[in-house]
Simulated scan of single mutants.
Amino acid sequence: MKVGRWRYDGRVQEGFIRTEGVVAFPEDLTMSQVIAGGVAAAREACERTDPQLIPWHLVTLVAPLEPASIRDFVAFEEHVEGVSAAVDGRSQVVPEWYEAPTFYFTNPHTVLGTGELMSPPVTERLDFELELAAVVGGVEGSEGTSLTPDEAEDHIFGYTVMNDWSARDLQSREMRVRLGPCKGKDFGTTLGPWIVTADELNRRCGPDGRMGLRAEVYVNGELVGQDLTSHMGWTFPELVAYASRNSVVRPGDVLGSGTVGNGGCLAELWGRRGVTDPPPLVQGDTVTMWIEGVGEITNVVGAARPAPPIRSARSAASV
């Protein structure tokens, strides 16, 4: 099954994605309620849905959900190796990366849908990041805390394509403070074009639990990067389990895989080549991402958004 959200007749509707168009959920059921009920609830809603279909030419897709939170992991070893060269001049994967998955939280309030204009901050190094993301659903009787990977698998409602937009010059300054990215990341994340329920993709998992889906990214129609999602260092159930460790995951949480390798972002290519080639994104560039079995998202880069000046800190010596 595929579920999503769209704009039709001046308002946002939610429901099922069909080949010929879209069908709204029955009885004013919401996306949040369907996700909280899990895949079984989605299947039951599908059976009760009025078959009245709205054709594609009458609707505009929006982000498939309003996330409760967004955790973004860094699960592809090749990406870590390439980007490290762009950051400190040498390719490496620190030993700590292998010990446990690492993630950061980003902004659930700046999510974009496919087709929406990306308005970046003022930056000289705008970049994309191609990712697969899992959407957490509800499991009756589970608090979603300190899950095992087997338990966590039941909490995955479905998957969507994710673009973790990045302003690399802002991110570079922030990372020197040794806390994590903030304004280099939180201005926009694209999710879409819809959510494919987990039961539809689980059959693509290999014996080790990884899904071997082909992932590709294009800039202005030119293929820039491609990889297989099976190259992740951890499976999605392992990522969900780690996110819940001494904490909690809730329906509507989104967990990104981190950027795929082999050109999943420009910074990786800059690090490997030693030059900013391909160049950073600029206004008017079109970025398209496709993941096998999931779908395709596209955004055009708009004009930069100016913001008020920043006051520098007062040093302790001056206080």
Rank of each mutant, 00 (worst) to 15 (best):
M1H: 09
R5F: 01
Y8E: 14
D9S: 11
D9C: 04
V12Y: 04
E14D: 13
R18Q: 13
T19Q: 15
G21T: 08
V23M: 12
A24G: 06
P26R: 11
L29V: 13
L29E: 01
V34I: 13
V34A: 09
V39M: 02
A40P: 05
A40V: 14
A42T: 05
R43A: 10
R43F: 02
E47S: 14
T60A: 12
T60K: 15
T60I: 06
A63W: 01
D72R: 08
A75D: 08
F76L: 07
H79N: 12
E81P: 01
G82F: 02
V87C: 05
R90W: 14
S91W: 03
Q92A: 13
Y98D: 01
A100Y: 15
G113T: 02
G113N: 02
L117Q: 12
P121F: 04
L126H: 03
D127S: 09
F128H: 09
L130G: 04
G138I: 00
H155N: 02
I156C: 07
T160P: 05
S166L: 08
S172V: 01
S172C: 07
R173Y: 12
R173T: 11
E174C: 07
G180V: 10
G184F: 03
F187C: 02
G188N: 04
L191Q: 01
A198V: 11
A198S: 15
E200S: 11
G206Y: 00
R210N: 08
A215R: 09
A215F: 05
E216P: 10
E216Q: 15
V219S: 04
L223Y: 12
D227S: 11
L228E: 04
T229F: 00
S230R: 14
S230W: 00
P237R: 07
S244Q: 03
S247Q: 10
P251L: 06
S257V: 06
T259S: 06
V260E: 00
N262L: 10
N262H: 15
N262E: 09
R273N: 13
P280V: 02
V282Y: 01
V282P: 04
V282L: 03
D285L: 06
T286Y: 00
M289S: 08
G295W: 01
E296L: 10
N299W: 13
G302W: 00
P306E: 09
P309M: 05
R314Y: 11
